[in-house]
Design a protein around this nucleic acid. Sequence first.
DNA 1: AAAGATAATTAGTGCGCTCTAATCCCTGGT
DNA 2: ACCAGGGATTAGAGCGCACTAATTATCTTT
Lengths: 342, 342
Amino acid sequence: MTQPTMQQVAESAGVSTALVSLVMRGAPNVSDKRRALVLKAADELGYRPNVLARNLASRRTRTLGIVVNDLHNPFFAEIVDGIQTTAAANDYRILIGTGLHSRRGEADAIETFLQFRVDGLILAGAVVTEGEMERAAKSAAVLAIGRTASSLEIDTVNCDEFVGAHLVIEHLVGLGHRRISHIDGGSGAGAAKRRQGYEDSMREFGLEDHINTASGDFSEAGGYNAADELLTMHPRPTAIFAANDLSAAGALDRVEDAGLEVPSEMALVGYDNTGLAAMHHLSLTTINQPRGEFGRIATELILERLDDGRTTAVHHVVAPTLVVRRTSGPYSETSSEREVAL
Amino acid sequence: MTQPTMQQVAESAGVSTALVSLVMRGAPNVSDKRRALVLKAADELGYRPNVLARNLASRRTRTLGIVVNDLHNPFFAEIVDGIQTTAAANDYRILIGTGLHSRRGEADAIETFLQFRVDGLILAGAVVTEGEMERAAKSAAVLAIGRTASSLEIDTVNCDEFVGAHLVIEHLVGLGHRRISHIDGGSGAGAAKRRQGYEDSMREFGLEDHINTASGDFSEAGGYNAADELLTMHPRPTAIFAANDLSAAGALDRVEDAGLEVPSEMALVGYDNTGLAAMHHLSLTTINQPRGEFGRIATELILERLDDGRTTAVHHVVAPTLVVRRTSGPYSETSSEREVAL
DNA sequence: AAAGATAATTAGTGCGCTCTAATCCCTGGT
DNA sequence: ACCAGGGATTAGAGCGCACTAATTATCTTT
């Protein structure tokens, strides 16, 4: 298990350890002859640079730590993809950590990364306090995805939830709908903004009288129950805008249980464009957030701090887009007339 | 950005660096007075141990590297949960890496971990060659989940796919089904074994004449197309066993498109018990693999090598269980009689 | 109260590497 | 043939910590 060191490579190649170091780092001023010599020796010995020692000495790790709120949410997987691709292109490596869904666990994950002396830290959907983030920012470049930060040391990347909600309402209004209800996401990430965006947009289209929100919690069951509540209204809404895809799926279940046709008798729009929404079986109209972009932009921003020495905070906001699928369609006069069994 | 070192803590507390080191490691023979003194100084300075230096000196990182095949697959998230919980209980930390779906990327992720000198490496669904794994095993304890390995240096944890397939067939036969077709997973992980298990079990129940497989690829579209093919048979099968949940969902789509009632006219069983299957909307009967258990067992096994000095390989096989939901039901005489539009 | 035993503390070395400054060697101009 | 100039190479000093062996403080025992 004991690994060969630079020293051994140097001896084997008949050069100094300093030269081996230069070769390993791809330094320019090394003769081709020696370079080949060293590389050959390293290869034969199965030499592998010791990052720990390397970075102890250089005080840089060229490593980014990614703290992911929830590994179960494919949402984050795509963000990580974007980060990884961009990081690799810039010769950085990434390490991923997660906090087992707790604020405490997340803080531990951050601590682990800081102990490993990562150069940068990207927090994707993190729930730690801003104080924690600022503390971390003393030791590494910190960027948060999906939340705001007021510190000068912390960059952020966010999606414009207002625009997203507006796209939904605009779409539904364009289809002729007026009684558009919302199933919100409770205290979940972005839920408040989506709800606000819903209300603002309704007013913008002169539909303030039809603003109506049932409370959900981003879960399937929450969506089901919320839809249940909405169906008892007289007249009932002709369209439902759910705060995320999962609750939209739950709502869809309830609506279909009631015997209503989707979208002719009830239009339904979700949010996030998860794999769920794309499934043929559901085919949910929803809002897409450019997740890979999140990762790419986040990485570029953090590298600006690391490599270009930027010291001011940047808050990047990207625009979401509407993805129209089969659960949204034109309003028909009779759609809310028919009595159904509840 | 420059961080306090042990030296500074020692000076501030008026003790030697060696004492600080002992306190930081929680060594026993330190007086309470000094311990408190050091802890206080460390806290005030915001001291954070440098893992790089620590492990350069001790040649241990107490860190496990987890290489995950596909971050998008929630399957792995639960494995990671199990690993993390068990690791934390044993005072190990974990780092996660992924290979961007390529064999090359995976090898890179392994290399990164080895350069960071992780003590152990857990490969979850890895697709790297066994040669790569053996190479890694020279530098760290290696364990593979979901694949076999012949090297003495590599432990494995697997689910018994034969048992899983058998549970499905037993369940369907118990419901009275005889014409049970299979949608396979092509070259995906475990696909071959599930197919073999299907065939073996069918023979066991004397149904060798009804063995019939349509080829899929673990995708929704693959399942849809495979079901399309199965529906053209005369007489058509009364039950379909899909090699994973996603293709089962695709198949379900096709079956419903054809106007068949599920489960009364066509039973459908998936595999993996993903979140998809649990959705109310789908409610798919499927095979559950104890994913958290995978992680727990894997971690325990690797810690045996690390802390107890085990040097022989252990291959652990765990049993899957059947989860009955709404897509499977009793065979009815007339179920395959009705002509449907294809 | 002295001596021996035990507990607490520290000096000092080395882990494997990077980096600065110094040295070496080769080239070309005169 | 000599020296300047510049590219190639190396010696040597840390980076922040753990660990062994040695030292000092504290406690027993008689």
